[in-house]
């Protein structure tokens, strides 16, 4: 398992090939990339700041990945989440999961994202044409997590 929070960008191609080549019995790698949109809640977003809780964030992400590992038959999982100031089209998060077959990896990847969205301590603040605003948590994200219970 690898969990990282960092200000710098990441190279998705490199990260996925590391995961693919780590084991010869890997048959599937499923990945998700989240990126900054220039439109949210009807406003134009020019910048996004991501705050986190150093120490707790990494621990929370590790706990989420551990849960995924105990629930599905996966080989390895990687989570990279950026913090600091980001612009539209910048990558925010990469979640990648390797397994023998695609089914387990698809489910584990989605599970990790749904839990990350609702349990990992990150907070987004947007700069829009109307000024700065904290992004509110969405109930649909809670619903997405609940379906795994």
């Amino acid at each position: 398992m690898t969990v990282r929070t960092q200000t710098q960008d990441f190279d998705t191609g490199f990260e996925l090939s590391q995961l693919r080549n780590a084991r010869k019995d890997t048959g599937a790698v499923v990945s998700f990339i989240g990126q900054v949109r220039d439109l949210n809640e009807g406003g134009t977003v020019s910048q996004l700041t991501l705050e986190h809780y150093p120490g707790m964030t990494e621990k929370a992400l590790e706990a989420i990945v551990s849960q995924a590992q105990s629930r599905w038959d996966i080989f390895d999982a990687l989570v990279i989440h950026r913090v600091g100031i980001l612009q539209p089209t910048d990558q925010i998060v990469l979640v990648a999961v390797s397994s023998a077959h695609r089914g387990e990896a698809f489910k584990a990847c989605e599970f990790i994202m749904d839990y990350l969205k609702t349990e990992a301590p990150f907070w987004k603040k947007e700069v829009t044409s109307q000024g700065e605003r904290w992004v509110d948590a969405k109930l649909t994200d809670d619903d997405a997590r609940e379906r795994w219970k």
Partner: peptide, 23 residues
């Protein structure tokens, strides 16, 4: 992460924050 009834003891690091919005 804990709920409102969680006990706090000497030396604890407590944190307060709004619902999370990462990803």
């Amino acid at each position: 992460l804990v709920d409102d009834n969680a006990p706090i003891t000497d030396g604890d690091e407590v944190a307060f924050f709004p619902p999370v919005t990462g990803g």
